[in-house]
Design a protein around this nucleic acid. Structure first.
Length: 760
RNA sequence: GGGCGGUUAGCUCAGCGGUUAGAGCGCUGCGUUGACAUCGCAGAGGUCGCUGGUUCAAUUCCAGCACCGCCCACCA
């Protein structure tokens, strides 16, 4: 008989649970709701689910997160610890806004958010968000995630909004948030600034153009510069060389004439110039290059912005006004050549920044934006990891973390978007200065300018980087800035489990912000899992068309099979290839256990007391399986304590299939002599314990089988989800028995071998 | 330019200072009497990337090298 559709696919019925205070709780179906068990003296085990973006449905990465976290949570819950696994969703600023912008453009050709207006557009965003929020919750329930849905949070809920406002106001008044004009990463397509982390550097084959700048007053003499961006010539305000460079020393202080537009610009000396690169002379474009911007600051050079926000050339570009930056590049190169000012061209490969959201080439430009001063926040965040107060699994990521934290740069947090936390800053129409709400009441919108008293205030139109609110997640979800019972009881949390790809984006920020706001670490352990790939090792993506959805796999093989497959052979920090074959193997294992249970159920004829398994007169095979069971119990607990979920699973798999099914069940079929006790209590005791051991990994199947076994054999307990997790008991260990039976199995295998060879 | 990871059976991956190095899939042969063909039994298949070093003992620890991959990075 094969596994029923029921066990494979359906969500089991709800179960009731009475806690030690006598309160009843329901969980699974209907609400998917499970509250922490009442206090029993044990430390709470707390996991905050990384909130999925409300941009779409869950993918296999989310399923992996759920499988790992649910296994940990169930294990701790069964050990009698009060557990909290808190769900939530992220508004996902730019990612979500882009999706909805595309949506409205599709519905009505050419409709943009600007045509719709801020309020109407945000209404659409909330609509979208509501839809996906419930889809995401539904998918988690289908995966068997035992989350506490009564505590579900969304990053734009009132609580998190208050946490964000409070954090911004406090950091502002501490001088750790400031507005400044600096070099920024601008995405011309998304029309917003990006943080350094959101820029993806890609190596591209390009050219190095060598351009001659005639000396002022000596049109026959040139300074030749090498550039990868000829279109920025229009914004040059100097040419620089190393002050010790003998080729240029005598020219410093003189001027060259900018080709095409004929503007004279100075030749300056600056230590930052590498004499061996190119010609040793650098064109300085302060408005469109980070290095040039710094040089310009040192030499008080003007910055000329030659581009519009959509990366077309502006009026400063003279004849090129209105041209796209890349079209302008081609045109300028041709014009330089015609003017005889193009010395030569070399092929050149270099890294160019791209928007990690839309892959557009990022334009470095000067902009007035809001920043977090990260230095003072990074120092304690570095210390807690170095001191081991926060453990990172696998530990080699601690070094990656430290390296990043040591070289951290200020974090640009303003975004020119509408979907997100609005920046709580008001500008005065009269004096032009900024007003931020007071420390003692961060939620109050200021009515008058803090500097001149004017009532003509306008709030900053921008919103905050999504990761700003994500960085507060472990404490904002528990009620901070209020001093709540949840915060006291569940913070710091136990484990933050997420993908290594967001170590800097998210984990690092949570540690900095958690320490800054609460003075405490946000979690004790960081568990980083790898990325999901397809069977060829490629990243799954819609454009590649190689995406396998969790729903599809659940439908076909069952949620337990998917969960088991995701943890099999997976170790922290390593990527995982997922294929149908992998899930099929897990499904076969589920089926094996289903059938073994069916056999045991068939042997039961009335009440069975599992305690009878441990009477002293047991024959060898009984003592063997009980000893092996205890060994497996010890191993699985040890592996789980060390976050080796895949290994724990593998030991269970080997024990269940290779020892319980292949050997023990078969041995019990051999008729026993008179006076030898029946194997039935051993079968029941072993199976019952197997189900408990496996429950964190395969919750649906084990619960269903356990309920059937309980009913048939008249066992104690109400539901497996709250049954005690097995602990090893040295008294059950029987090394001599194990060794003796190993001899027997070797003998049998030898006989079968001989029989096979002689075809008996 | 820095940093990190990988290299183990045909494929995908576990593992490990100490008996004959494992799993899944694939492969070969046999098998339909009531747990299970989504299965059973038997089996083939690996000089654990290369070169040194530490050790009684190295696939495992250390160093160097070679490929492969990833992350970080303001040489135009």
């Amino acid at each position: 008989m094969t596994l029923s559709a029921h066990a494979q696919q359906e969500i089991p019925k709800a179960y009731n649970h009475q806690d030690v205070e006598g309160k009843w709780y329901r969980f699974w179906e209907e609400s998917g709701y499970f509250r922490p068990v009442a206090p029993n003296g044990k430390e709470p085990f707390v996991v905050i689910l990384p909130p999925p973006n409300v941009t779409g449905e869950l993918h296999l990465g989310h399923a992996l997160t759920a499988a790992i976290e649910d296994a940990l949570v169930r294990w701790h819950r069964m050990r009698g610890e009060p557990t909290l696994w808190l769900p939530g969703e992220d508004h996902a600023g730019i990612a979500a806004q882009v999706v909805v912008e595309q949506q409205i453009a599709k519905e009505e050709r050419g409709l943009t958010r600007h045509l719709l207006g801020r309020d109407l557009f945000l209404q659409r965003m909330w609509q979208w968000m509501g839809t996906y929020r419930s889809i995401i919750a539904e998918q988690h329930k289908r995966l068997g995630a035992s989350l506490d849905w009564s505590r579900e949070r969304f990053t734009l809920d009132d609580g998190p909004v208050r946490a964000v406002r409070t954090t911004f106001v406090r950091l502002y008044h501490r001088g750790l948030i400031y507005r400044g004009e600096r070099m920024i990463n601008w995405c011309p397509r998304c029309a917003t600034v990006l943080s350094d982390l959101e820029v993806d550097h890609q190596e591209l084959d390009s050219h190095l153009w060598y351009v001659r700048y005639p000396l002022e007053g000596e049109p026959e003499r040139f300074v030749t510069v090498a550039t990868t961006r000829p279109e920025t010539i229009l914004g040059d305000t100097a040419v620089a060389a190393h002050p010790d460079d003998s080729r240029y020393r005598e020219l410093i202080g003189r001027r060259v004439v900018l080709p095409i537009i004929g503007r004279p610009i100075p030749i300056i000396g600056d230590e930052a110039i590498d004499p061996v690169f190119g010609t040793g002379a650098l064109k300085v474009t302060p408005a469109h290059d980070p290095v040039d911007f710094e040089i310009a600051q040192r030499h008080k050079l003007p910055a000329i912005d030659t581009m519009n926000l959509d990366a077309t050339m502006n009026a400063e570009a003279g004849p090129y006004e209105g041209m796209d930056r890349f079209a302008c590049r081609d045109t300028i190169v041709r014009d330089l050549e015609l003017a005889g000012l193009l010395d030569h061209i070399e092929p050149y490969r270099h890294a160019v920044g791209h928007c990690d959201r839309c892959d557009t080439v990022v334009e470095p430009r000067v902009g007035l934006q809001w920043w977090v001063r990260t230095g003072p926040l990074a120092e304690p965040a570095l210390r807690v990891v170095r001191d081991g107060e926060i453990r990172i699994v696998p530990d080699h990521f601690a070094r990656t973390y430290e390296h990043w934290m040591e070289n951290i740069r200020d974090w640009c947090i303003s975004r020119q978007l509408w979907w997100g936390h609005r920046i709580p800053v008001w500008y005065c129409a009269d004096c032009g200065r900024e007003t931020v709400p007071p420390l003692d009441d961060p939620m109050r919108d200021p009515e008058r300018c803090a500097h001149c008293g004017s009532e003509h205030l306008e709030q900053d139109p921008d919103v905050l980087d999504t990761w700003f609110s994500s960085g507060l997640w472990p404490h904002s979800t528990l009620g901070w800035p209020d001093d709540t019972e949840d915060l006291r009881r569940f913070y710091p949390t136990s484990v933050m489990e997420t993908g290594y790809d967001i170590l800097f984006f998210w984990v690092a920020r949570m540690i900095m912000m958690g320490l800054a706001n609460t003075g405490q670490i946000p979690f004790h352990t960081v568990y980083l899992h790898g990325l999901i790939r397809d069977e060829k090792g490629d990243k799954m993506s819609k454009s590649r068309g190689n995406v396998i959805s969790p729903d599809e796999l659940i439908q076909r093989y069952g949620a337990d099979a998917l969960r088991f497959a995701l943890l099999t052979g997976n170790t922290p920090g390593n990527d995982l290839r997922v294929s149908h074959g992998r899930v099929e193997a897990a499904r076969n294992f589920a089926n094996k256990l289903w059938n073994a249970t069916r056999y045991v159920l068939g042997q039961i004829d009335g009440r069975v007391d599992p305690a009878d398994a441990y009477i002293p007169t047991r024959p060898l095979e009984d003592r063997w399986i009980l000893s092996r069971l205890d060994r497996a119990t010890e191993t699985v607990n040890r592996m789980l304590a060390d976050f080796q979920l895949g290994e724990a699973q593998r030991h269970l798999y080997d024990f269940i299939w290779g020892e319980f099914c292949d050997w023990y069940i078969e041995l019990t079929k051999v008729p026993r002599a008179d006076g030898v006790p029946s194997p039935l209590p051993v079968l029941v005791a072993t199976l019952e314990q197997i189900l408990r051991l496996l429950h964190p990994f395969m919750p649906f199947l084990t619960e269903e089988l356990w309920q059937a076994l309980r009913e048939r054999a008249g066992l104690e307990g109400e539901a497996l989800i709250i049954a005690p997790y097995p602990e090893p008991q040295p008294s059950r260990r029987d090394p001599e028995g194990e060794a003796a039976l190993d001899l027997v199995t070797d003998l049998i295998r030898g006989l079968r071998n001989i029989r096979g060879e002689f075809r008996i």
